Computed example of a mutant assay.
Amino acid sequence: MTGTSHTWPHAPVRVGLVGAGPWARAVHARVLAAGPETQLTSVWARRPEAARETAAPYGADVAATFEELLDGCEAVAFAVPPAVQAELASVAAKAGKALLMEKPIALDLPSAQRLVDAVDTAGVVSQLVLTNRYHPATRQFLKAAQGLDVVGARSCCLSSAFLGGDFATPWRLEHGALLDLGPHLLDLLDAALGPIVRVRGAGDLRRWIELTCEHANGAISQASLSGSVDVERGITRIELFGRHPELVFDSTALDHEESWPVLRREFATAVRTGQSGGLDARRGLYLQTLMAQALES
């Protein structure tokens, strides 16, 4: 479901898309073209033929260069590896473009800091594609969690992506589950239990990694991450424990199509009002800082 029954009182935000891989085709291009809040204006990718295949179903232009894409849009969506995103998003920010970015925002903390510095200096709107955060069921879970005195939590984010297929990409296979899946789980744990002040990690980034998170309120959470296990569907599960009945979030059966209209409208609203929401580049930098702690432990 990529449409919305709500009217949109503004002109659609003209968005250029960087990237033409499976995720760009399956999500970014399709969702941005659906409107009414956004319009997919053009696509630019390293492979021109892939860019044409991504743009064609929606009547979008194919930009010959990244600079040409910037000239024809007011916002840029990125569906490229983290190192490429960090570099090009900084350029787009300096050009005054709003940014819709994937997680992680960069491959390492210094690159993430430079990107956020560019965003802050330019004063542009930014937003992260943290899929679960835009789903109504996730928001209900987080709202319920706010009233609880949580002592501890168990969680996992597991997939078979690294075993083969479209998402067994070089950067994922090299850097593993922490960078790929970590932002999703750390973001949810932080939102549910309160600010994470310390993260320790153990295990093999390419096989299975365990994180122990210490929260500012004294709660402790555990997170298991792997992209190398044979599961039919990706599993994201969080269990909260305390002096209350167990509260569970499980995304396995969720229809993520419900996330996309929410994401699209919130991004377009941020662009039109000039005000980023809480899931912005600074949130990405915070998550990158937590992952860096885990790598150093």
Rank of each mutant, 00 (worst) to 15 (best):
A95Q: 11
A95L: 06
A95Y: 06
A95S: 13
G96S: 13
G96K: 14
G96M: 11
K97N: 04
K97W: 06
K97Q: 05
K97C: 03
A98F: 08
A98R: 04
L99F: 09
L99R: 01
L99T: 03
L99M: 06
L99H: 04
L99I: 08
L100Q: 01
L100N: 00
L100A: 07
M101R: 02
M101P: 00
M101I: 07
M101D: 00
M101Y: 09
E102K: 10
E102Y: 09
E102V: 00
E102Q: 15
E102H: 13
E102N: 13
K103L: 05
K103H: 13
K103W: 10
K103A: 02
K103G: 01
P104S: 12
P104N: 12
P104R: 10
P104L: 10
I105V: 13
I105K: 04
I105A: 04
I105F: 09
L107T: 05
L107N: 04
L107F: 00
L107G: 03
D108L: 04
D108S: 12
D108Q: 10
D108W: 02
L109N: 05
L109T: 13
L109V: 14
L109H: 09
L109S: 05
L109E: 13
L109W: 04
L109P: 00
L109Q: 12
P110L: 02
P110N: 06
P110D: 06
S111V: 07
S111M: 04
S111A: 14
S111G: 15
A112Y: 02
A112G: 14
Q113I: 08
Q113R: 15
Q113P: 01
Q113C: 08
R114S: 10
R114L: 09
R114P: 01
L115I: 11
L115K: 09
L115Y: 09
L115G: 04
D117K: 15
D117Q: 15
A118D: 10
A118Y: 12
V119P: 01
V119A: 10
D120K: 15
D120L: 14
T121P: 01
T121A: 15
A122F: 14
A122N: 11
G123Y: 13
G123P: 03
G123E: 07
V124F: 13
V125G: 10
V125S: 11
V125T: 12
S126M: 10
S126F: 14
S126L: 07
Q127Y: 09
Q127V: 03
Q127H: 15
L128E: 00
L128S: 02
L128T: 01
L128W: 08
V129G: 01
V129Q: 05
V129S: 07
L130N: 06
T131N: 15
T131K: 15
T131S: 14
N132R: 10
N132C: 08
R133T: 05
R133F: 15
Y134E: 02
Y134F: 15
Y134V: 04
Y134N: 03
H135R: 07
H135Q: 12
H135D: 11
H135W: 09
T138N: 05
T138F: 03
T138C: 11
